[in-house]
Amino acid sequence: MRIARWIDAASPVPEPSEGFVVGDRVIPFPDGQTVAGILAGGTDAAHAAFARVQGDTSTPLAAVRLLAPLVPASVRDFVAFEEHVEGISASVDGKSEVVPEWYEAPTFYFTNPHTILGPGEPVAPPVTERLDFELEIAVVVGASTGSAAGESATGWSNLTAADAASRIFGYTIMNDWSARDIQSREMKVRLGPAKGKDFATSLGPWIVTADEFEQYLDADGFLAIRAEVRVNGELVGEDLVSNMGWSFPELVAYASRNSRVVPGDVLGSGTVGNGGCLGELWGRNGSLTPLPLAPGDEVVMTVEGIGELAAMVGDHIVAPPLPAARRRSRARQRPDR
């Protein structure tokens, strides 16, 4: 099943609709159900809703504009591809390496759920000289089959990888837009990334339920699907998702460790290798080749079993300035006891 959100492309005041994509048409959920409600009910709810949809309420896909397929509860983004880490490290300090700590546990950061973009929605980047894309696959968390009523309201903690697998509702494509120069500066303070990334994340074109991917799982539980990215029609990167260092259930399990995952959480795989982003290629080439993204460029990502996620780069947005930090010019004053 494919689950999406959309608006009527011709309506002057469009209201979002949510439902299924069947062939080349969209069909709303029955009884006003929502993507959030379906995720809370899990695959059971999705199959029950699909069995009750009315074909006579469908609309041609070409007549609607797709939105991001969900409003995420949170967005975690991992760095699960060893080849990507090698290339990016070379772009930062000229030394291609993977630090030993990377192998010990999957690492992630939280990004901004309020700046999610949908398919075809242009990105408005900050002022940057090194705008980049990141080709990723993301899992969407949902309730498991046969979950107890109300279980998904609080989510789950300390899942095993086996338990986590049943909480993977589906998959979508993720583009983690990055301003590499801003990211590099702020991470020198040993925190982040923050403003180098939180201006935009694209998701879409829809969520494909996990049962559609069982045929792609290899013997070790990794998704052997192809992912590729083109800039202005030219192939820049391509990789197999099965080259991840950890499987998706292991990422979900780690995210839940001493914490909590809930329906609607989005977990990105991190950038695939072999040109999944420009930064990796800059590190390997020792120069800004290919060139950073510029206004007017089109980035198209295609993932086997999911589809295509495209976006144009818009004009840079100039933000109001902030002063530099006040430096200490005298002994710091302390409060009196």
Rank of each mutant, 00 (worst) to 15 (best):
G41Y: 14
G41L: 14
T43K: 12
T43R: 14
D44I: 00
D44V: 01
D44P: 06
A48Q: 13
A49F: 08
F50G: 09
A51W: 04
A51F: 05
A51C: 12
R52D: 10
V53Q: 09
Q54C: 02
G55M: 10
G55T: 13
D56P: 03
D56R: 12
T57P: 00
T57K: 13
T59A: 10
T59Y: 02
T59C: 07
T59Q: 07
P60A: 15
L61S: 10
A63I: 05
V64A: 11
V64M: 05
V64Y: 04
V64P: 06
R65C: 08
R65V: 04
L66F: 14
A73Y: 11
V75M: 09
R76I: 02
R76T: 02
D77S: 04
D77T: 03
F78G: 02
A80N: 15
F81T: 01
E83F: 02
H84W: 03
E86G: 10
E86A: 13
E86N: 11
S89Q: 10
S89M: 08
A90F: 06
S91V: 01
V92C: 01
D93F: 04
G94W: 06
K95I: 14
K95H: 09
K95A: 05
S96L: 12
S96F: 04
S96T: 10
S96I: 11
E97T: 09
V99C: 00
P100M: 11
E101T: 07
E101H: 01
W102R: 08
W102D: 03
W102Q: 06
W102M: 12
W102F: 11
Y103R: 06
Y103M: 01
Y103I: 04
E104G: 11
A105F: 05
T107A: 09
T107I: 02
F108T: 01
Y109L: 03
T111I: 05
T111H: 02
T111K: 04
H114C: 11
H114L: 13
